[in-house]
Design a protein around this nucleic acid. Sequence first.
DNA 1: AGCACA
Length: 249
Amino acid sequence: MNFKGEQPMGFALFTSAAAAMAAKDALQNLVFDPETNSVLRAEMAKKNLYVKRGVTGVGTETAPFDQSKRLRTASDYSTSHYAPPGAFAPPPSWMPQSYMPPGGSFDPYTGYGMPPLQPVAQPMVSPVAPAGYMPMQNTKDNPPCNTLFVGNLGESTSEGELRSIFSGQPGFRQMKVLRQGRSTVCFIEFADVNSAIAVHNTLQGAIVTSSDRGGMRLQYSKNPYGRKKEFVNNNQDGAPGVPTSETSG
DNA sequence: AGCACA
């Protein structure tokens, strides 16, 4: 569905072009309305957002403006003090060399400078945490693979909502919901690891309305789809191993 | 924190 010109849109101001790029990538394809499976489209604006001094959340005023009363937004308030959000934290040791976290290299934009200005007051919230997300601590994750494990889902979680959230994501293959008494977990297979990584990052902590636990927790599955189960006994000394379902068939 | 199906 594409109602050009009729969909609401908004503009968000970031501390730097790099931060805006990171947020854009993080939010791209976010399902913000699971009911209709509506997906968020994020682009770099054609022009910088102008913000009146002392006013927050503006952008649509048409009143005549006075150059002295407005502040031109710069692309380079000292980017050095900008702490990237958790999704772009330094890669752990198992991170494959080939994978560069989004937001890692924005060199094309660093020379993009406009004259530095006094910084506007920035709210101390993560620039990529819109409504619809909950902060989510995700200790103990597994190496990236093509299958995501979804946790922190209440027993009331509807499979339909999960499907509407994930089935529209690029690379989605299949989904399986598992009821576990008081809680629910879910497995999602993607066509490739990168698709899974993208969703792991963008939907981490996303609110599942039908669940009563706030945000979902996304982890890489311990046992991804399509990975052959290894032999339990692959000792080199030739001793007979215990047959597994692979060997005894 | 809870990881099934092949």
